Amino acid sequence: MTAPATLGTDQARARLDELTVIDVRTPGEYASGHLPGALNIPLDQLRRALPEIRHAAERGEVLVVCASGARSENACKLLAEQGVTAATLAGGTGAWAAGGHELHQPAACDTRAGWSMERQVRFTAGTLVLVGLVLGLLVHPAFQFLSAAVAGGLVFSALTNTCGMAVLLGKLPHNRPRRADLDTALAALRSR
């Protein structure tokens, strides 16, 4: 299977009003900032939304986005297996923001978390490493394995361009939006 088509951030920005943008991140990540007009259909809900996405793809081009481009590429491959052509945003919302483009944060979908997912991951990883080191010095050297495990997880995360800690943190109550909006996103896709 060939790699999905990729749009750069400037290309996507210039054509944003022509594209159906689907954000496959978790609702908490989506609420922390997404492309204007993007609909949130988390990757684990993509199969449920296939009829609506197929309908949108028949009417115009679909752009799938995530934080870095890894999940959106997986989503494009899943869609391609079902006969739906979609492009992915190179570098995801991280590249979009780094390019100086606006991220939308609607109050209606806001999470209770005040920090971005990336900031939460850095804080949690740093805290676990520090706790492992301090307990390893003061209580028992075996606690240093906690620091080693976090370091190994960070290396694995960098090599695979995934983040298990973000997935776990996304499941915490403070990272969940106050209301689910999948039905609203599906209705919006039907109306396009």
Rank of each mutant, 00 (worst) to 15 (best):
M1Y: 04
A3Q: 14
A3G: 12
A3E: 15
A5V: 01
L7P: 06
G8R: 02
T9W: 06
A14R: 08
E18K: 11
T20C: 03
V21G: 13
V21C: 10
P27K: 12
A31H: 15
S32P: 15
L35C: 04
P36L: 13
P36C: 15
P36R: 15
P36N: 11
A38S: 09
N40H: 07
L43D: 09
Q45S: 14
Q45V: 12
L46M: 09
R47K: 06
R48W: 03
E52K: 04
E52L: 06
H55F: 07
A57H: 02
G60V: 10
E61N: 05
E61C: 13
E61Q: 09
V62N: 00
L63S: 08
V64R: 09
C66T: 11
C66W: 03
C66P: 08
S68Q: 08
S68F: 09
G69R: 05
A70S: 12
R71H: 14
E73N: 06
A75I: 04
K77W: 10
K77N: 14
L78E: 10
L78I: 09
Q82R: 05
G83W: 01
T85C: 01
T88I: 00
T88F: 00
L89T: 00
A90Q: 08
G92V: 01
G94T: 08
G94A: 02
W96Q: 02
A97N: 10
G100I: 01
H101G: 00
H104K: 00
A107C: 02
A113N: 13
G114Y: 05
R119N: 07
R119V: 02
R119G: 03
R119F: 03
Q120C: 05
G126S: 10
L133C: 10
V134K: 11
V134D: 08
L135C: 03
L138G: 07
V139K: 06
A142L: 11
Q144I: 08
Q144T: 14
F145C: 15
A149W: 08
V150Q: 10
A151G: 10
G153H: 04
S157H: 05
T160H: 15
T160D: 11
A166P: 15
A166C: 15
L168M: 04
L168D: 02
L168F: 01
G170K: 00
P173T: 01
P177C: 10
R178N: 07
R179H: 06
R179S: 11
A180G: 13
L186R: 09
A188N: 06
